[in-house]
Design a binder for these strands. Structure first.
Lengths: 349, 349
DNA sequence: TTGAAAGCGATACCAT
DNA sequence: ATGGTATCGCTTTCAA
């Protein structure tokens, strides 16, 4: 058998039942508010539970219910400020709803599937994918086990996964309008090689938004950073000769880190925003608000993303068959120094 | 009873046993490499398991073993770059050792205890506290349930919790030496009101280190930011008249965010490092390396902190009775622009 | 309302 | 080496 716990033996529902003078069943019902229990029994159970310091064994509970109070979260490179902000919001939302977060870090898109598998082994109540693209087959496995999967800011992975996504189109449009209103006549889209899906979508949307603004395609240049992050943006600015002398250039970046790196590198070259060019980033991470950057940026409402993602899980748990949805979340343009708010002054005359 | 799964019924060890023509017991042994199994049986079990796509139910496994493959992590404000870096390292280390991370975010020191309780309900294999101070009583509860608890960068919470801690004394000494060698004659210690334990220790150690360097106490001033973070540092610099005209001031900050905010605010006032003052931060977060800051800083080896924390859990699981330890992790001075490396030139003459 | 009992799925002991 | 079986702790059905 098992070695008896030499210290404090675990308190079980059985112990509570004994002390309260009722059966395990009553204890279970009383404590989980399921089924009917007389007020007196309930009181006695609660008293006994408190007295013994009883705590439900979630493993046993989950085993029986075939579902744990766990929600799986997949994330990559938590050191990226936007990701940590998002995960922070997710943790809050998850706990606010009475769940616990099971977090796995992936270093490679491939690992997403493995993470999902491990989540199912814990019978999680749902999965939130914030990085990586899970193979449709594995998502289906989850669905078959009645485990809803939702992605944040990613492409739909087949017809089984819901997605909550910041409105990249609107963001690109806001950026394009702002840059045009600010008088830019030449444009650059900055992204990195092997960008995420969201980054690519933003680029496409920016191109489209410029067209809508009446900008001819030849006035948009694409700049590929050799890598992601601050360093990528920094290098991108070094390795290219950006500015046409005649026209103010408006630059839109796939994310905040790229924008910060780009800006620093440009400054090192003696060029600054908004005098020499305009710059708008995506994400509105804390650093973009710092005095040294004051970056105009597209703000993502992370709390909203998190909340909608969890709502989505709940909904899908109820209606497993319903078609997968894409739920948009509004974005906002935050005016800061690298492309200041344009007042109506041009219309004054 | 339970509603039968309408889709794919869960594959259990029983199913594998049936297909392999052996008993559940053999399946368990074969798959967990426990007990003895004939090579042939093993092969058949493995084949059957693969064929059926069998996955162990961790809930059942944990219930039986009285221990899950979970490790609890307590963290606050994940948006702080140092915290997210540390948690990132912890996640990697946890997964590298075959565990899964159960993460709880606390917004208040008080919640630490509640988090630990919930961890025990999942029969976690260990707990890592990176924020907050768990009440000694609850830590003891954990220990009594054979759940080791380790803190990172915090005070020992009674005799039951091990602690892994960056060497704040050494860090302060490195900072003091550097500032002195750079010619500073007047010093400021910048921290925020209600600082963490680590911050306070660094302050004390800095004071001591200056004494060792032969600096009289009256040349050290303490500056209290009204809050933590970038904003706190920014405000601290605004609300105080820092520099004596005669002597170069050396400033040491409790953390990186304070330092960045402080630096930006000083610049706004027309003062910059290292010309007008010297500045050294703690943590070496990614942003301190950015071109706009290039902050000289004390580097914490997060991977080392994470690795030692997990080693510690393992050790304590083996020896529950052993006295609690404090395990130091070395820090390094990273020379950057706000207090550049001092060459031997002063000795040349 | 209540309690007895049948699981949930896996593990480890013990006898074979 | 193998299989039967008790057990981990809780939930839920079912009959009383």
């Amino acid at each position: 058998m098992k070695a008896p716990n030499p210290n404090k033996p675990t308190v079980t529902a059985q112990d509570v039942a004994r002390l309260a003078g009722v059966s395990r069943a009553v204890v279970s019902r009383a404590l989980s508010n399921n089924g009917s229990v007389s007020p007196q029994s309930r009181a006695r159970v609660e008293a006994a539970a408190r007295q013994l310091g009883y705590q439900v064994n979630f493993l046993a509970q989950g085993l029986n219910r075939q579902r744990s109070q766990l929600i799986g979260v997949v994330v990559a490179r938590l050191t990226d400020p936007f990701r940590s902000t998002l995960v922070n919001a997710l943790l809050s939302a998850i706990q606010a709803r009475g769940y616990q977060a099971l977090v796995t870090e992936i270093t490679d898109e491939q690992e997403t599937g493995l993470s999902l598998r491990r989540f199912t082994q814990f019978r999680v109540s749902g999965v939130v994918v914030t990085s990586g693209q899970p193979p449709e087959s594995i998502v289906r496995e989850c669905i078959e086990h009645h485990i809803p999967v939702v992605g944040i800011n990613r492409a739909q992975s087949g017809p089984s996964m819901d997605v909550v996504c910041s409105d990249n189109q609107a963001g690109a449009m806001l950026a394009a309008s702002q840059l045009c209103a600010a008088g830019c006549q030449s444009f650059i889209w900055l992204n990195y090689q092997g960008s995420t899906w969201a980054g690519r979508v933003r680029g496409e949307a920016f191109r489209h938004a410029l067209t809508v603004q009446g900008i001819a395609p030849e006035y948009l240049r694409e700049l590929q950073a050799p890598q992601d992050g601050y360093e990528g943006g920094f290098l991108a600015a070094q390795h290219s000769n950006l500015l046409r002398p005649q026209a103010t250039t408006g630059i839109f970046c796939a994310n905040a880190l790229l924008a910060c790196g780009f800006l620093d590198s440009m400054r090192q070259q003696g060029k600054n925003a908004p005098t020499d060019f305009h710059l708008i980033g995506f994400d509105n991470t804390p650093q973009t608000a710092w005095e040294s950057y004051q970056l105009t940026t597209i703000h993502q409402q992370v709390d909203e993303l998190a909340a909608k993602a969890l709502d989505c899980l709940r909904e899908r748990a109820r209606h497993p068959e319903r078609a997968a949805q894409v739920i948009p979340v509004a974005v906002e343009l935050v005016h800061r120094r690298t492309s200041p708010c344009v007042t109506e002054q041009t219309d004054t005359l």
